[in-house]
Computed example of a mutant assay.
Amino acid sequence: MDAATPLNAEAPEAGASQAVKTQLRLREMILAGELPGGTRIAELAIVERLGVSRTPIRAALMRLEQEGLLETLPNGGYAVRTFSERDVSEAIELRGTLEGLLARLAAERGAAAVLLGEARACLDGIDGVLRQPALNDEAFSRYVALNQRFHNLLGEMAGSAVIVRELERVARLPFASPSGFVVVQANSPQARDMLIVAQDQHRQVLDAIEHGEGSRAEAIMREHSRIAQRNLREAVRGQHLDQMPGVRLIRKRS
């Protein structure tokens, strides 16, 4: 260590890591209902609650505002945002549009064989999960991980860093990610049936990509997002607040 560097100075990498961890924890608190919609975020209270300094908290609050979970107040500071049902619906629609575009580009440009192989292996893993007559917590968690992996592979197959970056930004919006409402499927009587429908769409879009059918691949992914739209409608009717307290951030249509 340089003699001029204070012993208690925090390395830039450590500071950035702490800011990310703080951001994840604050997001978790908001979506778990620990910080209800409209709540003003008091920095000092968060410092005491999380046991970190103000610097990473301020960085985390700025990032959550950029994500759309927080809004700036006229007199300074932040408050937890609420969302209209239309806000969330449009975010899901935008995700479907971007994923459709990625699927079309992957089909038209030709996906790398290694990525196609990884996608097939991923879907084989989902098939294994869905062969169970009922999903326990462990199986459900594995489905979520594999589902996210497959959606990520679509971006890799298309080879478009620009579109992937925009998709990542959209998917950070509350409930807009591919698994944003999948917990609703897990707790509904038709849970396994809906996941099987989604899995069939996964298989169909991969087939379209392998055969260079860009328009078909795009249409399938646009349709795929409609499952999330259905789950949104179920969620805002208040059927799953115990499993998804963050749904309280969504204002119902008037």
Score class of each variant (00 low, 15 high):
L98E: 03
N147W: 00
P174C: 04
L50C: 09
A235S: 07
N152L: 04
L102D: 00
H151W: 13
L7Y: 02
T22F: 01
A91S: 12
H151E: 13
A121H: 11
E99T: 12
S254T: 11
V129Y: 02
A3W: 11
I30N: 01
G15E: 07
A198N: 08
E138S: 15
P74F: 06
E85I: 03
L105A: 06
V183H: 14
G37A: 14
Y78W: 15
V47Q: 07
I41W: 01
A191W: 01
L195H: 14
L115N: 03
A45Y: 02
L70C: 06
S225K: 05
L135Q: 05
R58M: 11
V52E: 02
Q185A: 14
A103N: 11
R40Q: 10
D87C: 10
A119T: 10
A139G: 03
P189D: 04
L98N: 01
R251H: 07
I196W: 05
Q148N: 15
R142T: 04
A4N: 10
S177G: 09
A112E: 12
Q243K: 03
G15Y: 04
A228T: 09
A32C: 09
E10R: 08
T72N: 07
G159Q: 07
E166N: 06
A112M: 11
A45M: 02
N8Y: 07
R86F: 10
F83C: 05
T97V: 12
L64Q: 07
P6R: 09
G100C: 05
F181D: 02
R40D: 14
P178D: 06
E43M: 10
I92T: 06
N75S: 14
V80T: 04
P178K: 00
V183R: 13
G238I: 09
I30P: 06
R27M: 05
H202F: 12
N75P: 11
P133M: 08
I196E: 15
F181H: 00
D87V: 07
R49D: 10
R233W: 07
Q243M: 10
P56Q: 01
A79C: 06
V205I: 09
T55G: 04
A91W: 14
Q199T: 08
A3H: 15
S188R: 15
A235G: 01
Q201K: 11
V114E: 14
Y143M: 00
P178M: 01
M194Y: 08
Q199L: 08
Q243C: 04
S188W: 08
I46R: 07
A171W: 11
V144R: 15
D137W: 10
L31I: 00
Q23M: 11
R226L: 11
R172D: 11
E28Q: 03
E166H: 14
A32V: 03
L154N: 02
R169F: 08
V20C: 02
R149T: 04
A186I: 05
K21D: 15
V20S: 08
V162C: 08
S215N: 13
I250T: 03
G155M: 06
E108C: 06
R120Y: 02
E108D: 15
A103E: 07
P12L: 05
T97R: 14
V144K: 14
D193L: 13
G100H: 12
L105V: 14
R25M: 11
R104M: 13
L195K: 01
L94Y: 10
G212V: 12
E85H: 05
R230V: 15
S160L: 13
G117K: 14
S89G: 14
R237C: 10
